[in-house]
Design a protein around this nucleic acid. Structure first.
Lengths: 226, 226
DNA sequence: GTCTATAACTTGATAGAC
DNA sequence: GTCTATCAAGTTATAGAC
């Protein structure tokens, strides 16, 4: 966290270290970790290769740095929102949708800012690609734990194991939705290219909250309409 | 597609070409495409590096070959099941859950066989990693089109665009569920390690069919229980 | 068909001048 | 702090003997 000298423009990166971080974010978000070479990053950043090792030491350390500085603030906002919603509920059971909203809204909102979009996609790609490794636990462990507990309170009749499974599946939908629209086969992809963040968020909330609230081990007949 | 000489054992790969395909499948399923070098593949297969280029020409062609021979049969089974269900429905509206089952069951069933597990994970990883490229369209285009049409008939009151969005989200849940259990943060991951294919399939069907049937643009109150 | 040997290139990382 | 130059190891791919 470094002070900007000069006007606080969103673009025009401050110093070399900052340019490397920004470029790494862009490359990782587009190609993932394994496919992003340091050389492609420094070309994009317009800096020298040695600068990366001077400032970060290694490619892996660069990954840690670029993830850490971005994920922290988003997760703080997530926890803050969840607290706020739970306080507002005043002991009443918090709807699943609200819990999910507390988790999703900060990332979705961030992804509307020009720089934020790359960051959100990057984290999704890295998670998916399995490049986070132990970072996943360090950066997300507390948040996952906390939201899992909240969901458990919102769905008390759902067995713990089933909740866990649904959380796992839900994370998949979220991660791929945030990774961006590449490779969705067929002309279908074209029609979703212009989907705004608000539409995605609403779609995610409808889809996921229904999924979490799905009846468990019910009989053949469905309990909902359609 | 080559005939086996000798007993039709599941293991003990037949010839060099077959061993390369099997090894590539394993490596791609574990590390993805970009992170799997040809050298790691030939080491795993116990063959020479030049053999890869002799039989396939390039790493990319190897990818095409390994995907093509596996995806075809699964997709045929998917289409066959969907036809069967639709015929059995005799013009009545097919439940969403049945459509999803026709899509998921063949892959899940295959993933229980020792070789099949690697194959299913591989395709999921490649799709997620965006390594399929135009292969996604060639191999999955028809199936996606066909199942999208079936879902449209099963959910006539759902706007086309909303269905498309939900299909996109659902594919994410499916892909990550099939990729395998790596990197799910925290001790939660441990508890899902022993989840059998049957449990995953049932969980997916509950979760997804509820998600697809979620009311669209409904008011604040929920229509389902809990 | 399978091997060795090697070409041609890319990768992450470092040493040392400035 | 930033550069050039370079290393050592890794990568895909190929030529040619057997």
């Amino acid at each position: 966290m470094r002070l900007n000298r000069g006007p606080t423009a969103t673009r025009e990166p401050a110093d070399t270290k900052e340019r490397i971080l920004a470029a790494a974010e862009r490359m990782f978000s587009r190609q993932g970790y394994a496919a992003s070479s340091l050389r492609s990053i420094i070309a994009d950043a317009g800096v020298n290769l040695a600068a990366v090792h001077y400032h970060f030491g290694s490619k892996e350390e660069l990954l840690r740095a670029v993830v850490h500085r971005r994920v922290g603030p988003v997760n703080e906002e997530r926890l803050r929102l969840l607290d706020e919603y739970e306080r507002a509920a005043r002991g009443k059971r918090l709807p699943v949708r609200k819990v999910l909203e507390a988790f999703l809204a900060p990332a979705i909102r961030l992804s509307r800012e020009p720089d934020g979009a790359a960051m959100v996609r990057m984290v999704a790609r890295l998670y998916i690609e399995d490049a986070l490794g132990e970072l996943a636990q360090h950066e997300f462990g507390e948040v996952i734990e906390r939201f899992n507990a909240a969901l458990r309170r919102s769905l008390p009749e759902l067995p713990e194991r089933e909740l866990l499974l649904r959380t796992y599946l839900g994370m998949g939908a979220v991660a791929l939705a945030m990774r961006g629209p590449q490779t969705f086969p067929g002309p279908l992809s074209e029609q979703l290219k212009d989907a705004g963040e608000a539409e995605i968020l609403r779609g995610l909330l409808d889809f996921l909250s229904a999924g979490f609230r799905a009846p468990w081990r019910r009989g053949r007949g469905s309990r909902c309409a359609s």
